[in-house]
Every structure is written in C-alpha cells, then in structure tokens.
C-alpha cells in the first residue's frame, strides 16, 4: 500500500514486525499511540538507540518497542 508520509518498520516486543505509515514529523509517541499501546508501558529504540517519546521519527526508521510490563 502506498504511503505518502513516513513508513517505519516496527518490531513490537519481539512478537511481530509491522510496517506503519505515519505523517511526516510524527514522533515515537504518535507511533505508540497509533499501535494502541500506552506510552508508560513502552520503551522505544530507533535505529538501535533508546530514545525519548518526543523524538521525531527519521524517514524509514527501524523501531524496536520494548515492553515495560513483564512479570518477574
């Protein structure tokens, strides 16, 4: 499917990898919300680096989401 904005590849908790089309200038926070997740339950790494939620996603970013919620 065509994406006129920013197409990013997201690894969600090591369970699935998905392509998501976001608007240009979208942040990590926008991505987390678009996936229906809670910001306080996710830590994101963009292109291998842990980043804050307000980081703007670079074009074609590879994002790995880590789940905060895991039973010890």
């Amino acid at each position: 499917m065509a994406c006129s904005g920013n197409r990013v590849v997201v690894d969600i908790f090591g369970r699935e990898v998905r392509e998501v089309c976001l608007e240009e200038g979208a942040t990590v926070r926008d991505l987390i919300k678009a996936l229906g997740l809670r910001v306080s339950e996710v830590v994101a790494a963009v292109n291998g680096e842990v980043v804050a939620e307000d980081e703007v996603l670079p074009p074609a970013a590879r994002v790995k989401l880590h789940s905060v919620v895991s039973g010890g």
Partner: peptide, 28 residues
C-alpha cells in the same frame, strides 16, 4: 522542525523523558 529531544543537563540527544519532572535526559 527540531526532531530531536535534548538532555536538559548537557544538550545531547535525549534517551529518556522523565514525565513527572518534565525533563529529558541523555543516556549518561
């Protein structure tokens, strides 16, 4: 557009947003 959140101590790229302080911090 800025694009990168900056550490409030040193100005480097931030890794963590400490929401209850309203501040960003770099890894170090």
């Amino acid at each position: 557009m800025g694009g990168t959140a900056r550490c409030f101590v040193c100005g480097r790229r931030a890794s963590v947003y400490v929401s209850y302080l309203g501040e960003y911090l770099c890894p170090e």
